[in-house]
Design a protein around this nucleic acid. Structure first.
Length: 577
DNA sequence: GCCGTTTTCGGCCCGACTGTTTTCAGTCG
């Protein structure tokens, strides 16, 4: 374990990943070998996806054990920790204007063009790019024309994207996917249609929405696609593919493909890129060449497949659930036929609010809605601070009454308590002990040190009445970074006490995130998938928690509320209390 | 820069689209 003061100084994974991505971008502008750039980008992704701080691993010489990180990159991480910078990165930053990286990322531009704009026109950043385009100096360059110049100006006119701001929450993208599939499926020219891309993999945010379809009349189907009611702008409309931007700013893409290689195409367009690259590399070692059009053997004959199952089978794999396709070990297990049976649904929702605190629906309304969704039990977890001065007793009476009126669903008396700055909880222990289910969460002091926050949460985990830690890292997607925690210490304490950790299904939380939930479960921690609903409609957020659990490789056994309340409840009578 | 049931050297997925070309480089996923 790293001592607190040293750990505080360690760069977080996200910052390290950014450094290597910048290094790759600058090297690319510098004309470096593409495979070298790829190595840095792969390493950056590995670092970002690691559940443990890679800086700490590097200091112990263990970062090399991560796939894609070798001794050179490990040495650079150590250098960053010990000197505060990476010399190679500093050198490049002085040789190449850093603003040129933004220029390179303008859609349609790339490293070669960006470098030419710099050397030939003196463009060093986006402002310089705008000036050059407005003065028609770009179209004067050989190989670039008026269309290029116009497209650059259009790109620059859009609001400057903050980190992740150009990505859309899965919770916004999936409803669009469902409506689009329904829209396409009703058309007579539509034979088969499927979601693809990152929405099919259920990643927490997506860049756009991808669909594929087969059709006996692709022109008619694509016309129907771009006639979707909420289209704001059609950006491409060809014979096999169309793209539009919806009124709420989400880009949607439909490709019409031929039926005989539907399986190859679905597999290809589902990705991820890393998964497909690894799949194809392995295929090459077997003398096969994989593309979206089929699998070519050494003799040059191409076999096409109508289903994904056939594609994977032809390469020696069991079919892989899209949520797992991130090149995170799934190919190896699929080859051995040892993929986990992923959790499919939950039987109870153990975190929701009512009008007794900040929810919009009554206890009974939540119960009726939950029953309609097929749930067998729910825990009403209003904020403890709103249940003082006798209100708790009144709320409990309403829960008892709801149990009488709603059959086939058990309504549990739960609570969500704040974990205070000193690690204590904001409801007296004797009242906590009477609750059926206790969620403890951090709602303040997000800026506290890593050591202090970790100590607070571990104290809550060790409290005999606490069953679960709510939204454990406190992040809000695109709004707020997670607070600084020693997750290994949290996981160890949770495993030791049998306290569960939540995957909070609110689309802007999804907290724990996938790689952390996977690491927690691997450490022996039970996971609970909750909606944290504040209205009846928001009960559906539990589905997003389950999607996240599947991305975390979790099985029914690892998700506590995939079981019945009878299976969950004995924990409370266990020896730890 | 990474990696290794052929290898510590010599590989590293594959194809489509775009704009500007007249055979292709650059970009994208």
């Amino acid at each position: 374990m790293i001592a607190g003061d040293v750990a505080d100084a360690l760069p977080p994974n996200d910052e390290l990943a950014q450094s290597f991505e910048l290094l790759a971008d600058l090297l690319q502008l510098d004309g470096a070998d593409g495979f070298r750039l790829n190595a840095y980008r792969t390493a950056a992704q590995r670092i970002r996806d690691s559940a443990t701080p890679v800086a700490a691993l590097a200091l112990e010489g263990k970062a090399k054990q991560l796939d894609g990180i070798g001794k050179t990159i490990e040495a650079k991480i150590v250098e960053r920790v010990e000197t505060g910078e990476i010399a190679a990165l500093v050198r490049l930053q002085t040789a190449i204007p850093v603003g040129l990286v933004d220029v390179m990322h303008v859609p349609g531009l790339g490293p070669k063009t960006a470098r030419r704009l710099w050397t030939d026109l003196g463009v060093e950043d986006l402002d310089g790019l705008r000036d050059a385009a407005e003065q028609n100096r770009i179209s004067a360059l050989p190989g670039l024309g008026e269309k290029s110049e116009q497209r650059i100006l259009e790109s620059l006119a859009r609001p400057r994207a903050d980190v992740g701001a150009d990505r859309v929450l899965l919770g916004r993208a999936l409803p669009l996917v469902e409506r689009l599939i329904a829209h396409l499926a009703t058309h007579s020219a539509c034979e088969r249609v499927s979601e693809a891309g990152s929405t099919r993999r259920r990643t927490e945010t997506v860049k756009d929405v991808d669909l594929i379809a087969t059709s006996n009349d692709s022109t008619a189907l694509l016309d129907h696609f771009v006639a979707f009611p909420s289209v704001a702008k059609v950006t491409a409309h060809g014979e096999t593919k169309a793209t539009f931007v919806s009124q709420d700013g989400i880009a949607a893409d439909l490709r019409v493909v031929s039926p005989e290689c539907y399986g190859n195409l679905l597999q290809h367009f589902t990705g991820s890129k890393a998964h497909n690259v690894a799949l194809r590399e392995e295929a090459v070692r077997q003398g096969l060449s994989v593309s979206e059009w089929g699998i070519e053997d050494a003799d040059g004959s191409v076999t096409t497949m109508e289903t994904e199952e056939e594609v994977y089978a032809a390469l020696g794999y069991a079919w892989i659930s899209p949520e797992l396709r991130e090149n995170a070990g799934e190919l190896e297990l699929a080859r051995r036929g040892e993929l986990p049976a992923l959790v499919d649904s939950i039987r109870g929702d153990l975190h929701m609010h009512t009008t007794w605190s900040d929810g919009r629906a009554s206890v009974e309304e939540m119960a009726v809605a939950a029953k309609a969704q097929g749930l067998k039990y729910i825990a009403i977890c209003d904020h403890a601070r709103r249940l003082r001065d006798g209100r708790l007793a009144e709320q409990v009476a309403e829960i008892v009454a709801a149990n009488d009126r709603v059959s086939g669903l058990r309504v549990l008396s739960g609570v969500e308590v704040d974990i205070r700055a000193d690690g204590s909880l904001d409801m007296p222990s004797e009242l906590l002990a009477e609750r059926d289910w206790v969620v403890a969460s951090v709602h303040s002091g997000f800026q506290d040190s890593r050591e202090k926050l970790t100590t607070r949460i571990v104290a809550a985990i060790e409290h005999p009445s606490v069953d679960c830690i709510g939204h454990p890292t406190g992040r809000k997607l695109r709004q707020r970074a997670p607070y600084d925690l020693d997750l290994d210490a949290i996981f160890a304490a949770a495993a030791a006490t049998g306290t569960a950790l939540e995957i909070n299904g609110q689309p802007d939380r999804l907290d724990l995130r996938d790689v952390h939930a996977r690491a927690a479960a691997a450490a022996g921690v039970k996971i609970v998938c909750n909606s944290d609903a504040h209205s009846t409609r928001a009960l559906a957020y539990a589905d997003f928690a389950v999607m996240q659990a599947r991305r975390a490789w979790l099985t029914d056994e690892q998700v506590l509320n995939a079981g019945s309340w009878r299976e969950v409840a004995p924990r409370r009578a266990g020896a730890s209390r």
